[in-house]
């Protein structure tokens, strides 16, 4: 578990708003190299990072583990008088969480910003009945315009800083767990494996732009050309007020294996049997339509790739305070390792 915490502490600190994944590459590459897991490491023009672990056997099939490296965030649309920044969101974000929240602005240097919160004397009579739009919010940098212009321009990405805070048990709060946490779980899974004893090569792709257009997963899966794929993402853990159909996935009960037309039924059933046999906790969910993950992009790459989707239950997704039970992340890592071993 402590190894997993270490990886999460590293992976969550790099910037990497969708479309700006390259900002994470240098530090990520350095860190991943230090773990000494992969025989080959690279990045792609579409914002993905990958590593390949070879078992050393000739013509060994390749198993791909996918998580996405990009996070939700914002992009500057106007640098304004008074040191304010207008923004647009990248990925789905609820406007209600923004006022007075802290952000990192990844300009020529990284500076701090605070979303403006409307003072009470400017509230309208029906203030809270009105719908808020993310783009109506803007950021205060506290800097004079000229100085701000020398650091930030239209197109500069903005994200929530990840402040990790342990809560009771193994619960951990932070930002960008979607999906850096899953990248960490994959790396942890690979650490369980003795590559010489495997019958397969294993690739880890940390794909770009999942939060927007899935192009990272599509193109990296094409490049790596795997025989099977496991997509690891986060899913909503049940919280009060969530739809009843979501009660099936709760924090603390293990990774969530998803049955969907956008995954491979046979591979999924096989994986469930592996979990049962190994006594690894898991939960089940279904996605009759889109899974909202990279599974479809990976599954439809080249001639089609049998794809399994497993997700780590997460609360407060797409906020500055995403919340995970790290037991679930570790169980998901164990599950991924067990499936790879069983192939």
């Amino acid at each position: 578990m402590e190894k997993l915490y270490d990886i999460v502490e590293n992976f969550t600190q790099y910037p990497g708003v969708a479309g700006f994944e390259y900002m994470a590459f240098d530090e990520l590459t350095k860190y991943v190299k230090s773990l000494n897991i992969f025989d080959e490491i690279g990045t792609t023009p579409v914002g993905s990072f990958y590593g390949i672990m070879r078992c050393g056997k000739k013509n060994a099939p390749l198993i791909l583990c996918d998580a996405h490296i990009d996070t939700i965030g914002f992009v500057v649309t106007e640098v304004c008088e008074g040191g304010f920044l207008k923004i647009a969101n990248i990925g789905g974000i609820a406007a209600k969480i923004l006022p007075a929240s802290e952000v990192n602005i990844y300009g020529k240097e990284t500076i701090k910003g605070v979303f403006v919160s409307k003072p009470p004397h400017l509230h309208e009579a029906n203030e809270y009945d009105q719908k808020m739009n993310v783009v109506d919010n803007y950021i205060d940098t506290g800097l004079p315009l000229e100085k701000l212009k020398s650091i930030v321009r239209v197109g500069t990405p903005v994200g929530f800083p990840c402040k990790l805070q342990r809560l009771l048990g193994d619960n951990l709060a932070g930002a960008g767990f979607d999906d850096r946490l899953c990248g960490a779980a994959i790396v942890r899974a690979l650490m369980y494996l003795d590559k010489k004893s495997l019958n397969v090569d294993v690739a880890f792709q940390f794909s770009g732009t999942e939060e927007t257009v899935y192009t990272g997963a599509m193109t990296t899966a094409y490049r790596l050309n795997p025989d099977k794929a496991i997509v690891i993402d986060v899913t909503h853990a049940f919280v009060p007020g969530a739809p009843k159909a979501r009660e099936g996935v709760k924090a603390g009960l293990g990774g969530d294996i998803c049955l969907s037309p956008h995954t491979h039924r046979g591979f999924t059933k096989f994986a469930i049997e592996v979990a049962k046999k190994e006594g690894i906790p898991y939960q089940l969910s279904s996605a009759p339509g889109a899974t909202g993950t990279n599974s479809n992009a990976v599954q439809t790459s080249r001639n089609g790739i049998p794809t399994l989707l497993v997700s780590i239950p997460l609360k407060n997704m797409h906020t500055m305070s995403e919340l995970v039970d790290m037991k679930d992340a570790l169980d998901t890592a164990r599950f991924v390792a067990a499936v790879i071993k069983a192939l």
Binding site: L167, A173, K315, T319
Partner: peptide, 20 residues
């Protein structure tokens, strides 16, 4: 320590979206 829960944007009904 605690976190004030915020229902994920994906789970908000069209009526709830944009409101707090």
């Amino acid at each position: 320590h605690g976190v004030v829960a915020s229902k994920a944007v994906h789970m908000q009904t069209p009526e709830e979206r944009g409101k707090c």
